[in-house]
Design a protein around this nucleic acid. Structure first.
Lengths: 221, 221
DNA sequence: TTCCTATAAACTGTATACAATGTTATTTAT
DNA sequence: ATAAATAACATTGTATACAGTTTATAGGAA
């Protein structure tokens, strides 16, 4: 892997795993010394992350981890609800026991990470489950897009997630795998839609976040 | 508009309008002197274009306009077929006479550009028709993605298009507008799917392109 | 103290320099 | 004349320098 790519992955992971929380500043000097490259290389990576909406770059103010707006959060989940279920027919044409086993192992890892409170691992695996499925559809263009949306979803959970967002998930990913094994395309699609809807519902999206407090209403009783 | 953004748009337009055909090299210093900025600014733009698949950057070899592979072409069109029809219900909820007029004007411009052989304008307007529709759906995330796919489609037409690809289009965009005016959601979705399928069918995707010639078969008679 | 202003520090934006790599042209030998 | 080898050139990769802007700090007046 090229060096740029390595730095990109490191920073992206840190963001997705909430090590770098939304709003965290990303000064070029600090990063360049951390990775022992010049600012040139860091800027390249930051600009890429900005295009992919993981960081925001403000002119003369530098980069910070994106704090997704509520509409952004909503739109990302809506996009996934629109696309991911539709990938299931194509996906099923590549589905066999080997794949089934692979994904079941993934779910096992997922549960284990959750049980041992390895939050970072848990987040990564949850996202990975979804975008590896998308990948099986065979359409690289859509798969890459879904991959991005999955990572952005992790960022969204960091900002608006509740305890229920990651954990319970109205019955876990195993249910989907069962449906896929039985080639129940329609039911699998419905399940996927419900699943994503559930995640979206678990978010706290009622515009009562810090920067938008209505003091008038708050103190007038 | 920031200067970077300006340069980006200029180069992107040139690519989309086939002024810079697939495979065309994009040397940094030539561009930097054309836009009278340093190579730094150019590299930034080129890297963005590379992430968006409009150009390819090869290490130590620089950038050239992407020549989409057949699978890429196929996947981009498939992606559009999957998404664009689905946007129609949401789109219809924002549809009114003002919008109808706006899009009918656009189609008029489109026809006019085509009639007067303004190929560049014609290409831009065809793409714009689709991504402005996507925009009306209200989901910015999906709309930006569709916008990119529309521009990539222009590049694909440059590589694999036939005379039929741009022009005839199995009845033009007006038909869709009529369906939208009548709020016939389902029929509009079907139309959109057919429309994109037609474009895809008009491409020459039979792997008999230059780099893949079977000389054995060609000279053994 | 509190607020405003002035100064200093930190950081980013852009250009340029130099090294590394790739490409082309020229030479030399067969 | 052709092919390989070498040298000259062109182009990219990366680091660094300097200017411009923002942010933090310190000092002084109300």
């Amino acid at each position: 892997m090229s060096n740029d790519e390595h730095i990109y992955q490191q920073i992206l992971n840190a963001i997705v795993e909430h090590q770098l929380p939304p709003g965290a500043r990303l000064p070029e000097d600090r990063l360049s010394e951390a990775f022992s490259v010049s600012r040139t290389g860091i800027r390249k990576v930051l600009q890429r992350l900005a295009l992919e909406h993981f960081v925001i770059i403000e002119k003369n103010k530098g980069a910070h981890v994106n704090r997704p707006s509520e509409t952004e959060a909503s739109e990302v989940l809506d996009s996934r609800m629109l696309i991911e279920p539709q990938l299931i027919p194509a996906l099923l044409s590549h589905w066999d026991l080997t794949q089934s086993k692979r994904f079941r192992d993934m779910v096992l890892e997922e549960k284990q990470a959750e049980a041992t409170n390895q939050l970072a691992e848990s987040i990564q695996l949850t996202a990975r489950f979804h975008y590896e499925l998308a990948n099986l559809s065979g359409n690289q263009v859509l798969a890459r897009f879904i991959e991005q949306l999955c990572y952005r979803s992790s960022l969204i959970l960091a900002a608006y997630g509740t305890r229920g967002s990651v954990g319970c998930e109205c019955g876990d990913h195993t249910q989907l795998l069962d449906l896929l094994d039985e080639k129940k395309s329609d039911q699998a699609q419905v399940w996927m839609h419900h699943h994503l809807q559930h995640i979206k519902s678990s978010l706290i999206l009622d515009s009562t976040t810090d920067n938008n407090i209505d003091f008038q209403q708050l103190f007038t009783h």
